[in-house]
Simulated scan of single mutants.
Amino acid sequence: MKIGKNITQVRESKGYSAQFVADGINMKLEDYLKIEQDILDITLNQLNHLAAILSCSPIYLLEYKESGGSIYNHFDNAGNNGTNIQIQGVDQKEIRTAYKELYREELERIPKLERLLRDHNIEFDI
């Protein structure tokens, strides 16, 4: 199985340099680049270290497909370490902006509902 392209795409999506990742798995840059180019096979131990550096699971690296603007959620429940969710292809700033707008709209909705209840003489507890 060739996973070099997957590793490259995930690394680039994280904004990491090849040198940063190579240092993280204790490899020479030229050897690491051979993994990304599918010239040198990766060991399971290296794959596990690489996945940890890229904040994903080894399976995610094996099955990664370019998102093309879609949302990919990957859940990795490893022991009691919790859940790791990776979202590819979505601008996090846009998500935060949309969430803030939704939250603001919900806050404005409460007084509107209270006014509507009062206008129709409907009792309610605050």
Rank of each mutant, 00 (worst) to 15 (best):
M1V: 13
M1K: 03
M1G: 12
M1C: 01
K2D: 13
I3C: 08
K5N: 13
I7P: 01
T8P: 00
T8V: 06
Q9D: 14
V10Q: 01
R11D: 12
E12H: 06
S13P: 03
S13V: 11
K14D: 09
K14F: 15
Y16V: 01
S17A: 02
A18S: 15
A18G: 07
Q19P: 02
Q19N: 14
F20A: 06
V21Y: 07
A22W: 03
A22T: 01
I25G: 02
N26L: 04
L29T: 04
L29D: 10
L29I: 10
E30R: 12
Y32L: 05
L33G: 00
K34E: 05
E36F: 04
D38K: 00
I39N: 01
L40I: 08
D41T: 01
I42V: 02
Q46T: 04
L47V: 06
L47E: 02
L47D: 00
N48G: 02
L50Q: 06
L50T: 07
L50G: 02
A51G: 01
L54N: 03
C56R: 00
S57G: 09
P58V: 04
I59W: 10
I59Y: 05
L62H: 04
Y64V: 11
K65T: 10
K65Y: 06
E66N: 11
E66M: 10
G68C: 11
G68H: 04
G69K: 09
G69P: 08
G69H: 10
G69C: 12
S70K: 13
S70A: 13
S70R: 15
I71Y: 02
Y72I: 13
N73G: 11
H74R: 11
H74G: 15
F75M: 01
F75T: 07
F75Q: 11
D76I: 02
D76V: 10
N77Y: 14
A78R: 13
G79Q: 14
G79W: 08
N80V: 03
N81G: 15
N81V: 03
N81P: 06
G82S: 05
G82E: 06
G82H: 04
G82W: 13
T83E: 15
T83V: 11
T83N: 12
T83R: 11
N84D: 14
Q86K: 12
I87K: 09
Q88E: 13
Q88S: 14
G89A: 09
D91Q: 07
Q92D: 10
E94T: 08
E94I: 06
R96E: 15
R96V: 15
Y99G: 01
K100Y: 15
E101W: 08
L102A: 11
Y103H: 09
R104T: 09
R104Y: 10
L107K: 08
L107I: 13
E108L: 14
E108K: 10
R109H: 14
R109V: 00
I110R: 00
I110A: 00
P111R: 05
P111M: 08
L113W: 09
R115G: 05
L117R: 06
R118C: 04
R118S: 03
D119M: 07
D119W: 07
H120L: 14
H120C: 12
I122Y: 12
E123A: 07
F124V: 13
F124E: 08
D125R: 06
I126C: 01
